[in-house]
Write a protein that binds this DNA or RNA. Structure first.
Lengths: 149, 149
DNA sequence: TTATTAATGAGAAAGATTATCATTTGCAAT
DNA sequence: ATTGCAAATGATAATCTTTCTCATTAATAA
């Protein structure tokens, strides 16, 4: 049998809480996701999952990632490059945003309550309730902002 | 020969200004784009272009759209649904943003100087110069905000 | 443990985009 | 206007990501 043993991750618990069947594969993928603080694509998630349990197929990673997204456990992101990337969804309040370094492509996360409030306001004044915000700003590192340049 | 006759569009001029060879197909695609105020995908652009000049292939639309994006003439957008969508790039100031109706998928454009300023500020304080902002908020139409519901 | 129903694996299929290559075209110089 | 040549195009093959199919396997409740 050789089932790999590791504790249930926070995401695995969430999975159960939502009434989703907690299969071995989902447990593994949830574990891997809870362990990640970056924005892996499906291919990368598959690589990490296989390290934990080789008895997993990429089709299942695709399926699970979609399931988790539909259930608000994951959020899909598009940073260009043709493939979707995923990260654990934020809680009820305090979305976070992404700054992408124009030169290196590096993704830097940030939060900003003032921005949260402003967006909420703008959307409300247009007659809508805010559901999700997808914001990424592309920036270029400033050339030594100190002194007189 | 049967070359369709229509004036050079603003985008065609831009194309020339950037030193790009202005072929018949590019002229047609530029014309179609200048004429569009929505966010067509490549398939849709192809449809519109063929109406103007049937001697055009979808491969060329893909190529042109990529070329224009690389030269800052177009901006690629991702509204979900698996295909890239395009719109004419904003000028130097005043990006615009998108509100997506969660139920209908309709895209509503808006501008907001306060948001422009705040984003600029946030990015600057992180040590970057803002290059592009990609913001779309998903919202759900409020259930009759009048009275006491 | 058994039944039931859903999930999985492996690969085929679909959908979007890019590459290939022979042919055509824009454009600069004649 | 003609010529020459590099670059663009058309048609289609190839690639890449994601979804689907279906026989097999596994999770949950009784």
């Amino acid at each position: 049998m050789k089932e790999p043993t590791f504790p249930d991750s926070p995401l695995a618990d969430l999975c159960r809480e939502r009434g989703l069947k907690l299969t071995g594969q989902r447990r593994t993928i949830a574990f891997v996701l809870s362990d990640s603080d970056d924005h892996p694509d499906v291919e990368e998630l598959y690589r990490r999952a296989v390290e934990v349990d080789p008895r997993i197929s990429i089709a299942t990673v695709y399926r699970t990632v979609r399931l988790f997204e539909e259930n608000g456990i994951l959020q899909r992101r598009d940073f260009g490059g043709g493939r979707a990337r995923y990260e654990v969804a934020d809680g009820d309040h305090g979305d976070h945003y992404h700054l992408i370094d124009a030169d290196s492509g590096k993704v830097i996360e940030f939060e900003n309550p003032e921005l949260d409030a402003l967006l909420d306001n703008i959307v409300r004044e247009m007659g809508y309730d805010l559901v999700t915000t997808r914001l990424s700003v592309v920036g270029r590192r400033k050339t030594k902002p100190r002194g007189n340049g």
